[in-house]
């Protein structure tokens, strides 16, 4: 009798799983492939999930097409949702552009002035949107390789021009096994946004 009950439970369990799977089919299925995700959300997925198991891979390690299969492979391994997969895929694809060696012109003088530009996001908004996933709300870094902004010999000991170039072009800290992608992976950031966040970093974490 007990065996029959156990068998029925197993059958019921299997049917439940299949019904759950089928009932949710098509609800949020990607209409187009590859449907573009949100790179800012993708940066957070990348920072929160990848390093749980392995060292986070540098976006520049793979081409766009290689990231597609890799992202879907990781969806299976890490139990990501479809939306998380699209977000992190978009982040990786946006972030794997080669780092330029051409110096940029840091026009505009003091970063604080630039932050007043009408079309610039506030520095705190840029930080909360793009940077916080890896650098953390305390600026000390949440993922291996992210530098500590609060150190006197940290990134903020450099000039605005240098930091601007590092943010805009991407940068690999000395000793770090991976690089920060250009614009932190958020290609929508403008020069003024970058200047604004530099001012925010200095105001919040500067010595």
């Amino acid at each position: 009798m007990k065996t029959i009950a156990k068998f029925r439970f197993r059958i019921l369990f299997t049917i439940s799983v299949l019904l759950f799977a089928l009932s949710t089919q098509g609800l949020l299925f990607a209409a187009n492939y590859p449907e573009r995700g949100d790179p800012v959300a993708g940066a957070r997925v990348w920072a929160d999930n990848c390093s749980r198991c392995h060292n986070a891979r540098d976006p520049a390690d793979l081409r766009d097409d290689q990231w597609i299969s890799t992202a879907f492979h990781m969806r299976m391994r890490a139990g990501l949702t479809g939306q998380q997969t699209r977000d992190v895929l978009t982040f990786m694809q946006d972030s794997n552009v080669p780092i330029s060696v051409e110096p940029l012109v840091f026009a505009g003088g003091a970063a604080a002035k630039a932050a007043e530009s009408a079309d610039a996001l506030s520095g705190s908004a840029v930080f909360a949107q793009t940077c916080i996933a890896c650098h953390g709300s305390n600026g000390k870094g949440t993922v291996p390789g992210a530098p500590d902004f609060t150190r006197s010999d940290g990134p903020l000991s450099q000039s605005d021009e240098t930091i601007f170039q590092h943010v805009k072009l991407g940068f690999k800290s000395p000793g770090s096994a991976m690089a920060m992608p250009p614009k932190g992976g958020n290609m929508s950031l403008t020069d003024n946004d970058i200047k604004a966040v530099i001012a925010f970093l200095r105001e919040t974490f500067g010595q």
Binding site: A21, T24, L27, M76
Partner: peptide, 12 residues
């Protein structure tokens, strides 16, 4: 063979 049913379920 993984079949992505939707954003929340994949059959393997």
């Amino acid at each position: 063979i993984d079949y992505f049913l939707n954003d929340y379920v994949a059959l393997v």
